[in-house]
Write a protein that binds this DNA or RNA. Sequence first.
RNA 1: GCCCGGGUGGCGAAAUUGGCAGACGCACGGGACUUAAAAUCCCGAGACCGGCAACGGUCGUGUGGGUUCAAUUCCCACCCCGGGCACCA
Length: 851
Amino acid sequence: MTTPPQETVNTHEDRYHPQPIEEKWSAAWQKDSQLYVAEPPSSAKKKYYVLEMLPYPSGALHMGHVRNYAIGDALARYMWMRGYNVLHPMGWDAFGLPAENAALKNNTPPREWTLANVASMKAQMNRLGFSYDWSTEVTTCLPDYYRWNQWFFLKMYERGLAYRKNSKVNWCPECATVLANEQVIDGCCWRHEDTKVEQRELEQWFLRITNYAGELLNDLDQLESWPEKVRTMQRNWIGRSEGATVDFALEHAGPVAEKISVFTTRIDTIFGATSLQLAPQHPVVAGLIANNPELLAKVDALISEQRSAKEAGEIGPVEKNGVFTGAYAINPFNEEQLPIWVANYVLMEYGTGAIMSVPAHDERDHEFARKFGLEVRVVVLPRRTSEPPESGQEEAPMLTSTSEESLLINSGDFNGLSNLDAQKKMSQHAEEHGFGKSAVSYRLKDWGISRQRYWGTPIPILYCEKCGVVPEKEENLPVLLPEDIEITQQGGSPLSRLPEFANARCPKCGGTARRETDTMDTFVDSSWYFYRYTNAKLNTAPLDRDTVDYWFPIDQYIGGVEHAILHLIYSRFWTKVMRDMGLISNSEPAARLFTQGMVIKNGAKMSKSKGNVVSPDDMVARYGADSTRMYALFAAPPDRDLDWQEQGVEGVHRFLGRVYRFFMRQAQPKNTQGNARLPGELSAEARKLQRKMHQTIAKITRDFEGRWHFNTCIAAIMELVNELYAAEPLIYSGKIPVQLIAEVQRSLALLLAPFAPYLAAELWSVLGETGVLLKQPWPPFDPALAKEESVEVPVQVNGKIKARIIVPADSSEGFTREQAMADTKVIAAIDGKELLKAIVIPGRLVNIVVR
RNA sequence: GCCCGGGUGGCGAAAUUGGCAGACGCACGGGACUUAAAAUCCCGAGACCGGCAACGGUCGUGUGGGUUCAAUUCCCACCCCGGGCACCA
């Protein structure tokens, strides 16, 4: 039996000081270069690839990073302890504009600035105790990596997936570069929320992501372990519409064109078309009005109106406007003459840039028709309506959804068909007669990757005076980004002002050529980095197929929901392209995706401008890494937003101190009596503690396997520790055997390992253990020992609790009912009333219904 | 306008299958230890009403209705907050 210590309260030495403990273990772990290194694919273990989104090396981690990585690290450590072969890599999304801005401000070369940031953020990560395998570290701004961006680009160029076109692009004056559509938010730059994006015409390189639109959409159905929210956002972004194209012949076929092709999802309403509407930029327009300067001016006005609306950041519908061209087209279904208009609400970028206007059944067409006095003709009637309204009436359009049962009228041979049948029959009819066919249109556009910036991957293309566009030869890769460059305030591509870079020889003919001086969008870098981790030092290829086949798909990808469309669509696209190139076998990068909530403070996202930024370094200095990480997991379930409250961190710190002090007082090290077998008979109090331990292990194990409610996992550990404190006095009286305390302590150290790895390691060594916690088996639990022996069952009378009875946990329904009915309070409550029924849920509750 | 989330004590939250609403923690109150404070340990606590008290009663998960012996949980309608998309034919 142990003697009670003289001082049961804490001595000075008992105090929990995380700094020395964490620094000691951090140093030890960093010295062990093999600690977090995964085994090769030949390993007999099952593989597990856990990945967190790589950060941009801005200079310092923020709390969002800490939360993201705390989740991933807990999972990685758990999977290790479960005996998996875990790949847990980290890298740096190291190209990008901030490096150039910093260069301008501090006169530091971008590379130097970036790599210094990498070093300090890596130190922060190591101080926080994240279990990354640095042997596979990827830094995207280094030639070892970006040469493969160039290599992929050349392969895509060969396959027709990379092409160049003159196009209207989104231009951010602040960044002085082009933005992808995905980077324009509410008409403003994604990096400069107050800067309106302008439209400019430039020669740009594009990747043909639209070739994969259908597959990107369909495969979302297989990604069952991705958040529904992300899948929905991607679906909306891809924006598939099923319909048909129909060709309308021009009444007077001119030199410009003979017909106008329109896209419609409602071919069933084609007899209701009373005009054609063209986008102002539609190529036919210029020909139609070429000899009418007045109309030309009006169309120009429409275009500049559109542009200024977009530049003003106006989203959504604006006042409808249009111009009649004076020309007519023939509706191929009824030979009717339709006036051809140019309208501001028709988008050149979508469908064919031309529509048939059906004012009776489309809100926008209706608004336009009313403004300009065009005919409104009803051709589809919902089943619920009996009488067709009169033609030309001024009411609101009869919007009928395709799913609604409705019938065609005023539609010639197609009268009486339901709209769904009509859609099929009319598309067929059009196809048979050669003036149309069913078609699918997507909202998704090709990915513009050219950036007029310095700090990015050079696009490996040359422009030869004789040969035109010539790709760089594969053996000449990488096209190195020159590093002795002066960054200036001037807009445009800095590389174009560097003759030694821009002036080159044509790889084909050896003649004078100009090198492409734009660089690639940095989202190219992050589209495939997770493949590189599997063999980061390979210098003959971007990846090794067998190794990738072993590790992929990623078992768990974790990151912020802000990447739901940008990064996560590009990554899926890149994966499919790589598969089609025969480089990999998988069609999707990640089997499971988890998007954690934002870290907010005082109800708002942390930002410098709001002055509510909490620095991780500060938290680590004050409370330690364990407390900081554990609070990030404890304060809210990981998928929800987390409001950072420093007092909460303090609370977690207090809890860890409570654990630490218990071990300091009561440690039952290995090779002492604490290690002996438990006595056969346990007191009720000892059973209670033992039961709590098994319940806690069971709960946490289940959560890691599914729900990931780490907040309640940590709460469960706290409950176990509270139970230990309650049991402590009973150690001295012998009611609780020290062998049991030893068992609980071992489990506790193991359970803490994913959440507070430093303290867990310290406690493990206090127990006289020398092995690395990561390699210890996760503690097992015995369901029989976790089971309660007796339970308190509330007894309700008409739904109000009147008594509580204690019965053995496995009591039958009959026994529970008997016990309930025998309770004096229950007898009093039902006295003199008619018993209607009694519902008994064994082990849960009894409800007696009386009248 | 359309599509996702969410709404529970003073605060962060819990309730895994329709079965005791508020676990765990913060803040708060009380006690122990201390010359004192900090730290620590123990106890209390949803709101309201009655009672010196043990205790008893009523209300309570955004609002209104419904199903059920029983609803934070299921159904219908609505309100508010956050996010995404938005003239996509």
